[in-house]
Design a protein around this nucleic acid. Sequence first.
DNA 1: TATGAATGAGAGTTCATTCAT
DNA 2: CATGAATGAACTCTCATTCAT
Lengths: 220, 220, 220, 220
Amino acid sequence: MQYSDVKELSPAAKRRIREKQERYETILAAALKFFSERGYNKTLIEDIANEAEVSVGTVYFYFKNKEDIMIKLIEDIGVILRKTLGEEFKKGEGNIDGFLNAGRVFFYKVCKKYPEKILLLMRESGCQTPEIEKKRQQLFDRLINDLIKALTKIKERYKIEYKSKMSVEVIATIIMGLFEKISYHFLIKNGTDLEIIGQDVIDFIYGGIKNLVIGDFHDN
Amino acid sequence: MQYSDVKELSPAAKRRIREKQERYETILAAALKFFSERGYNKTLIEDIANEAEVSVGTVYFYFKNKEDIMIKLIEDIGVILRKTLGEEFKKGEGNIDGFLNAGRVFFYKVCKKYPEKILLLMRESGCQTPEIEKKRQQLFDRLINDLIKALTKIKERYKIEYKSKMSVEVIATIIMGLFEKISYHFLIKNGTDLEIIGQDVIDFIYGGIKNLVIGDFHDN
Amino acid sequence: MQYSDVKELSPAAKRRIREKQERYETILAAALKFFSERGYNKTLIEDIANEAEVSVGTVYFYFKNKEDIMIKLIEDIGVILRKTLGEEFKKGEGNIDGFLNAGRVFFYKVCKKYPEKILLLMRESGCQTPEIEKKRQQLFDRLINDLIKALTKIKERYKIEYKSKMSVEVIATIIMGLFEKISYHFLIKNGTDLEIIGQDVIDFIYGGIKNLVIGDFHDN
Amino acid sequence: MQYSDVKELSPAAKRRIREKQERYETILAAALKFFSERGYNKTLIEDIANEAEVSVGTVYFYFKNKEDIMIKLIEDIGVILRKTLGEEFKKGEGNIDGFLNAGRVFFYKVCKKYPEKILLLMRESGCQTPEIEKKRQQLFDRLINDLIKALTKIKERYKIEYKSKMSVEVIATIIMGLFEKISYHFLIKNGTDLEIIGQDVIDFIYGGIKNLVIGDFHDN
DNA sequence: TATGAATGAGAGTTCATTCAT
DNA sequence: CATGAATGAACTCTCATTCAT
């Protein structure tokens, strides 16, 4: 198909494509709502269909099966997380502040903007089907890898060493776990002041990393 | 037969009581195995019965329902965790080393001795029935409370302050999340050296706490 | 297509609605057959499904649960009984013959046309679930109430009195019990001549009522 | 076994026989309580055992199975009913008053003294197992037969005729149904005055019978 | 005799998925 | 493309009955 073909779509065809995309998003949004509220298992396809104001059959037109919906949601969250945090870290060009700022962005931006998505990832995506577990694991592995790469960049930038051969992986894992628990713990207490908590968390992380590092974070 | 003898159980009665207790434990062990391996939902009562070499009816003789089995398992883990860690902290009489040692005990003793129990608590106990979720939440709340109390004792001991009014809760929550993720992450990689990791984690925690504290950990 | 057309259902849609209604009736008929033949408890959902030539799931698509099927059957019988007998009584404009004719209609029409329905109501609807018992009781109470109202109309029409303050309720209850037993007793003996029996019963009722009345059934 | 053997029973053996009989009665009483209160199906053997303060196994020592308990209860009620009403009728030497008095005895004595037994017979003994149904049917048939015999005696005594060949059976069946419904209807309304009702019922029956009779109840 | 733990067939209900219209 | 009725395998829980002690 050549570029010129795109232009040849009739207005009606364009509308149909747009509507199809919209319907897809609507179903995904309905699923997100129920999965994060009451869990994967307790959400019926019928619930999702009703919420999205389509029929059960339509849900199966857009998604292979229930599992598929969850996987698409996890992928969606993965893209948001990796993109947002990755870009923030890049701004710092490998310095420790860029790293910590990425952490701040998680609390101040991502958790605030997409609380259900974070809740879904952190709580409901576990313990379901093997395929979902795989996807979830894959995302966590990638996030941990992103962290490991960032920590390695920092190491090179400051010419520091980590205490043990496992330290980098440990730090990355800790940060993931801590984000998971903190976001869950404080997201379900709606009134909590995420700003104060976020700062405390970042301070904790900074202190923790410093204590696993030989050398310090001074630009020469 | 004298009156006092009435209180004494016959050997046969004693044996029966012991056997009953043993069967209860056998069923619980079978459930632990399957729940931690393949998850709550994918475990059939029949699986548990087969593994424990009893009939389905017997499982229901000892437990109200499937949920009840899980709840008993969570309670069991809760007792082990709180008792072991609590005792270790007490040894230190409120100093920071006692606190950190309790963390070490988690990795070196509890995770090593009861890997399935920890896996069950950390991964499979979430997102199932409301009753299970309640029990799990209750246990995590208690563990966080234990941590908060310990951190408060430490504060009094060293006459220090925490940076913000939320710091204590944040530290406690971070430690829970970090234990959860680290234990899960490294328990499923069987070959991992928990000793090195444990030490890194403890160092991270120590650094993190120090960075949220005004004052330092010196006895006068 | 004009706006008014929107309200009109397409032939296909009409057919689908009709088929749905028919399937509902088919399931109900299958349930009636088994419930009245072998009882509520001994009837399996699978039996009903097989008889109605649908799957078990389809039964649950049309009815909330087994109880619900029985309740719908009782409601159905209730409508038939109250409508048929009520209309017959109305024809008599409150005279004693209309009342007795309604009794005749019960034997000559209802019992003859719907023997299983009557058997179901009279025998199988008792002693099952609380919800069913409630519905059954409700229907009997309404039937007794219909009778009480009719007896009160008769009293006004002929300016008579009943012997005691309980007489009206007693007569109504007797008639219900007598219908119940007679219909059951003679319906299960297939060959019985319901015409003769019906006449005897009506005569008995007439004699019984007369004997509880002060005054007589003469129009002035 | 000869009569003299009876004397040779040791006091301990006698006590054992007495206790055995008592235990049997206790279990039966417990079953009666639950069957009449919550129905046959909803009563567990365990309930009966607990109420009777024996073990489940003991229940099965005294009774073949659950069905057997119910059957024994029905037999017990049968004996009471037939004996009490039969004796009352005999007193009248075949006159109509003896017949009606037997009816009075049903309300004034039997229903008052054994409300649960009557409730059990009238409501809970139906629609259960075939064996129970058979027993219940058998009892009702016998009671109806007793009534038929009585009505025949009355016919001979007064040299009367009944309107149709079915009249006697119809009257008998009516009386059974009416007793069933009336006793149930008014027994569950505890406060009701059974005396007034009883009199109304007897009057109704008398009127009903008179109206199915050719001739009248005058001694020559 | 008495006990009560053990049994396991049986039954109701759920719900992801399909497919004719 | 959309619909929603139909499917039926799957799973939990019940409870009368048995039997070793």
